[in-house]
Design a protein around this nucleic acid. Sequence first.
DNA 1: GTGAGTTTTGTAAACGCTTACATTTTTACC
DNA 2: GGTAAAAATGTAAGCGTTTACAAAACTCAC
Lengths: 341, 341
Amino acid sequence: MSDRKEKLTIYDISEKSGVSIATVSRVLNGYQNVNEKTRDKVLSVMNEMGYKPNAFARGLGLDTMKTIGILCADSSDAYLAKAVYYIEEALRAAQYNALLICTGYSFEDKKNALELLLERKVDAAILVGSNFVSSKASENAYIKDAAASIPVMLLNACFECDNVYSLYCNDYAAVKSAVEFLYTKGRKKILYMYNSKSYSGMKKLTGFKDALSEHGIDSFADYTVFLQGGPDDTDSFVNTLNNLCENGLSFDAVMASEDYLAIAALKYAIKKGMRIPEDLAVIGYNNSSLATIFEPELTSVDNKLKPLSEQLVNTLLGVLKGSEMPGKTEYSAELIERRTT
Amino acid sequence: MSDRKEKLTIYDISEKSGVSIATVSRVLNGYQNVNEKTRDKVLSVMNEMGYKPNAFARGLGLDTMKTIGILCADSSDAYLAKAVYYIEEALRAAQYNALLICTGYSFEDKKNALELLLERKVDAAILVGSNFVSSKASENAYIKDAAASIPVMLLNACFECDNVYSLYCNDYAAVKSAVEFLYTKGRKKILYMYNSKSYSGMKKLTGFKDALSEHGIDSFADYTVFLQGGPDDTDSFVNTLNNLCENGLSFDAVMASEDYLAIAALKYAIKKGMRIPEDLAVIGYNNSSLATIFEPELTSVDNKLKPLSEQLVNTLLGVLKGSEMPGKTEYSAELIERRTT
DNA sequence: GTGAGTTTTGTAAACGCTTACATTTTTACC
DNA sequence: GGTAAAAATGTAAGCGTTTACAAAACTCAC
């Protein structure tokens, strides 16, 4: 393994080992139709000379560099970050690498990011998080466009389209039954906090409303708060709650569409000296690391991130090997009960 | 912008626009020595036909695909995730893309990951986090090896070596003065919690010990706790503290080498019904998002992640454009005082 | 209109691999 | 030993760009 500076090519290996470049290439690609002695010879020459194949040339020849693009609104969001982590790990185990792009939350940027992936000729794209599919159909066209060239995999979002796979939890049912759970705990006035109007965001909201309807409530204005902001905006969420309460809003339970919103509710309550869960019960969504980091630990809807991530990658690997692209798979989420209920 | 299926090449553009492929290529690369009319013609043909250059062929020709490798032990660690986010954003703004590999904490894996980046022919590697440089010199050889081929940039770690740039905070001074700060607040018995024996981990520890020495303490066994685990192991940290205290350990302040260790101390204290900061003062390190998410909000040492990330990328871009590689830059950290002190 | 200098363009050879197809070598069987 | 089939290897033509070098076209002062 000497480290010569000059660039070594397949021709150098060919010359040194006395076989043709075709054979060297075959060895390189692990083809079986190579005589064992030849293979050993070539491998040892490669090793001895410290040869590394040129990835770009291989890319050009094979028309792939074994790269998967990962799109994610914000890789520092605890939940998304975990997903990225699992996905990258699973991909790497299968000899693929991950090209990461953080898109932010605007659809214009998501579209650009996905196009960028296409230009870089990734083998497939994985879109992580429900915010990639909008409740407005027109905003989802970019997914369809990309799917015309490469497989597109959605984690925790659903968009039915050729060459797009959606793997997600039934958010509607999850929220509905979590709210039902709060009712069984004797809660009277449940507030829904949410900050996304994505397709899945709307489903959750509907789950909430339907649960309330079943308890005779039909006007929701006083039961839902839409908040602007992301994981870093806890302060602003707390302030908003403060203001609303000063203006007469009251509630004895919070259902949040994201763990970090739930945490904001908890912070608000703790600051007000409320007892948890006696005075305020809170349920988050995603069962992210925030849920167990906070004190008291947060009851949260677990949407099975790890198994879903792994299954997503497995499905993708299958597709890349030639399996047919499935359409979608829906899981059921599970409520993880902790100290806030 | 019709979307023909057949693959378009530079030859198609050449033919359709009546110029040679060389000229098409020049237009593609924005060279100035092209007649303006010709350029417009070529661009409009490209646009009309929906041509996209083949990234692999360009990679081969230009010997770069404008890709930077990012290595990070665990992209779901709140602190590292934020760094990855900033870095990816800054790179993308400069037309580079990020190949992300999560290495875990073993040096064997880090070495493999870095080699993988080399094989993929990234233009440079950015290693995010102090855990990439060991206090054992032998474990750092992999960095030197990589630096023989590409620029290596370290964020929040220091390793002096040719073609390696280190950008970091003075951890020693930061911890020392944070501990000093606790003394000025009247704390008598300060416990240091840490979980890394990296180079920077050792510096922090020394900062702690030196601060204690100045207060007449010379035996540290009873003042330091080494913990195994990462951001997801809060429970185990809390348990460990519990056990130690049952066996007689006592303290009225905690200095932690990571925010998540500080959070564990806080959880322990809250569970025990201690008042914060009256009964226990806590200082974390990194000023990650955990610090402000928790209630009460955590006093933490801010090591300037965002400006450092951006400067790191800027420095790298300079180097890639031909500037000389600087050796290292040391910043001072800053204590952000919040509710836990 | 001429010629030197400048711009613009074209030709053809890289870049370092993969792979279809042709050729040679080996194997197995009579 | 001869033969047909199977296995191993080699030759050469891609893959889609970039770019050195050569050639052509343009400019402008005289």
